[in-house]
Simulated scan of single mutants.
Amino acid sequence: MEKYEVHQIHNVLNFDLNKLVEQSKEDGFRFVERLMTDYKSGTNTFNQSGEYLFGVFNDEGVLIAIGGLNNDPYTIDQCIGRMRRFYVSKEYRRHGVGSLLAQKLIAEAKKHYKILVLHTDTEQGNDFYTSLGFSKDSCFPKSSHYMKL
């Protein structure tokens, strides 16, 4: 069994995300590409208080998953965090990588927020996030799921 490690990413530009960008685009998602675009422009660098970007690395040190935590930009309520730009490489799905990353983000969110929100529009995403304890409800702006922390 491979060993996976979660590490905070302080500068995403120091990592090769090309494979994750291409895979996500093949899946019909643009959010990993948007992560890079926003990071390069300075729009979202996950560097405010309570914000983090984490990567999961395999035993060869290859980045196989990424996900971030922001202050929710769609509300003025500072008690709400948002899980964003969450993606797991295809060959590592259903191996616990996504859960490992999500649990790290949830643990960090608990230190700063009372509620954690996210948006997904896929059935697989819904199943994954509800298995982690998120409730499906759009009661928060531009979100599909939330978790009381």
Results as ranks from 00 to 15, higher is better:
1 M>P: 15
1 M>E: 15
1 M>Y: 11
2 E>K: 02
2 E>R: 03
3 K>G: 10
4 Y>T: 02
5 E>L: 00
5 E>Q: 00
5 E>G: 00
6 V>Y: 10
7 H>Q: 14
7 H>S: 15
8 Q>H: 01
8 Q>V: 06
9 I>V: 08
10 H>W: 03
11 N>Y: 05
13 L>F: 01
16 D>W: 05
16 D>N: 10
16 D>M: 07
17 L>T: 06
17 L>M: 09
18 N>W: 04
19 K>Y: 13
20 L>E: 06
21 V>M: 05
21 V>W: 00
23 Q>E: 05
23 Q>S: 05
24 S>W: 00
24 S>K: 02
24 S>L: 05
25 K>F: 13
26 E>W: 12
27 D>T: 02
27 D>K: 04
27 D>C: 03
30 R>I: 14
30 R>M: 08
33 E>P: 06
33 E>S: 15
35 L>Y: 00
35 L>D: 00
36 M>I: 04
37 T>E: 11
39 Y>P: 06
39 Y>G: 05
40 K>L: 13
41 S>N: 09
42 G>T: 05
43 T>G: 01
43 T>N: 00
45 T>D: 07
47 N>W: 13
47 N>H: 14
47 N>M: 15
47 N>E: 14
48 Q>T: 11
48 Q>V: 13
49 S>T: 15
50 G>N: 06
50 G>E: 07
52 Y>N: 02
52 Y>M: 05
53 L>E: 09
53 L>M: 09
54 F>K: 06
56 V>A: 02
58 N>S: 04
58 N>T: 02
61 G>K: 10
62 V>A: 14
64 I>V: 15
64 I>F: 07
64 I>T: 12
67 G>I: 00
69 L>Y: 13
70 N>P: 05
70 N>L: 05
71 N>E: 14
72 D>V: 00
75 T>C: 03
77 D>G: 07
78 Q>Y: 09
79 C>D: 10
81 G>P: 10
81 G>Q: 06
81 G>M: 04
82 R>H: 09
84 R>P: 10
85 R>W: 00
85 R>H: 01
86 F>C: 03
86 F>A: 03
87 Y>S: 14
88 V>L: 12
90 K>H: 10
90 K>R: 11
90 K>W: 08
91 E>S: 13
92 Y>P: 12
93 R>Q: 04
93 R>H: 04
94 R>T: 02
94 R>Q: 05
101 L>W: 13
102 A>M: 12
102 A>Y: 06
103 Q>L: 11
104 K>H: 03
105 L>V: 08
107 A>M: 02
107 A>I: 02
108 E>C: 09
109 A>M: 08
111 K>R: 09
111 K>D: 09
112 H>C: 05
114 K>G: 15
115 I>W: 01
119 H>F: 04
119 H>A: 05
120 T>Q: 01
120 T>N: 03
120 T>G: 04
122 T>M: 12
125 G>L: 03
127 D>I: 10
128 F>L: 04
129 Y>K: 07
135 S>G: 12
136 K>T: 15
137 D>I: 09
139 C>V: 11
139 C>P: 01
140 F>M: 08
142 K>G: 12
144 S>Y: 08
146 Y>V: 10
146 Y>I: 12
147 M>T: 10
147 M>P: 10
148 K>D: 11
149 L>W: 10
149 L>R: 12
